[in-house]
Write a protein that binds this DNA or RNA. Structure first.
Lengths: 223, 223
DNA sequence: ACCTGAACACCGTTCAAGT
DNA sequence: ACCTGAACACCGTTCAAGT
């Protein structure tokens, strides 16, 4: 027996900032940055483009909120038993992995405020820097350097995934880049050519972690 | 006595890729990223928007070419008598200073290829890494780490100058940021608050250089 | 209070037509 | 070969009008 009061299939729960941001993240993940359109978003939410503006001031706020949501999720609770060095590594790799799933975040992490969502990341890094025993006067520089390195990699990875058509896998892409490097002018690009083999078949994630370790060594070994 | 054949004031030398890119850089410098429009560019070149497409395939190529032009200019010849450490510093600061004049470059340096114009920078850094005596197996990581740090700072600076309205000077801006930091939740943002004083009145450029030194120390002190 | 969707003021890009 | 500029297919954003 069908219920008398059936709510129409199409009527969704009311619009909310939360639902809008979630839909924006989905759209960004599936169609990429150019796919985030107020019209596409409105269609997905079964409403008109104007409705979105009641909950969100504009596109840049929407992007910031989407970035916030992803990064907030990536900054899991610290493992209190880890060494500071391991905690920094875990923090950095958490961001790295989140960007792997949501490549569009990289570009907007970089272009976003000295405010959210980079601030929580800065705080988390800073705490570990302090735990490392870095003297107070050097803490700001140490935390900033780690932060800027992480954001730099984030941006580069975002650029890479944007350039590569979604189908190709990492290995194929690296091979292609290595191929172009091998064809560079031997004199003008002597160094780049010499590290071509290190590029081919290297692991982005491991490479990223190695950079973190390098900086940590620099922080520990400050003269 | 006026010459008989006077060329009309308005007729410029013919369009060329070079002139177009130069005009684009000017437009980006003076009006910012949102000011670079095919219509505005066409007006500046006294032609129609379609004409530009004969010399350039589209907007992204135009931006890449503009970025190329700026970075190419920033990578001056190495001082052969400098130590590798000083050469890396000079290289990095050259990029930093170029971005100070052309803030829009930061965003596009990050989002641009593993190809030009980051490749010449990578090559230049790599040569100095080699000169530092880094063993071959570690050269790629060392150069990448420096590179990613530089690009990270580039992106952040671009984001900062974009956020600040053109009038405000650095000191005022830092003061404003420091003000917001001082109001953060004391528990949630304990570290950030503790370095507020180091932020206020710090020197972006010196801070950037300090980060380079930190990484160089890490490279030298690799275990 | 919240939603609708047409309308506005732009974009990048194309292309027939000119020289 | 190179340029012109109207036209196309989009954008983000606004806003009168609805519920």
């Amino acid at each position: 027996m069908a219920t008398r009061t059936r709510r129409p299939e199409r009527r969704q729960e009311p619009l909310s900032r939360e639902r809008i941001v979630a839909a924006a993240v989905e759209l960004l993940d599936s169609v990429g940055e150019s796919g985030l359109t107020f019209r596409a978003l409105a269609e997905r939410l079964a409403t008109g483009p104007g409705a979105i503006y009641w909950h969100v001031t504009g596109k840049s706020e929407l992007l910031a909120a989407a970035t916030d949501a992803v990064i907030g999720g990536a900054l899991a609770a610290d493992d209190l038993r880890a060494t500071p060095r391991d905690a920094v590594r875990a923090l950095a790799l958490g961001v790295f992995d989140a960007l792997d799933v949501h490549p569009w975040v990289g570009a907007h992490l970089v272009s976003t405020a000295s405010h959210s969502p980079t601030l929580p990341l800065f705080e988390r890094i800073g705490r570990q820097v302090r735990a490392l025993g870095v003297p107070e006067s050097a803490q700001f520089t140490a935390a900033s350097t780690l932060m800027n390195y992480i954001l730099g990699v984030a941006g580069q990875n975002a650029a890479n995934t944007r350039r590569v058509e979604p189908g190709t896998d990492r290995a194929a892409h690296l091979d292609r880049v290595a191929g172009t490097w091998a064809e560079l002018d031997p004199e003008e690009y002597a160094f780049t050519r010499s590290v071509t083999e290190q590029l081919r078949g290297h692991d982005d994630r491991a490479e990223f972690a190695a950079g973190i370790d390098l900086i940590l060594t620099g922080i520990a070994g400050r003269p």
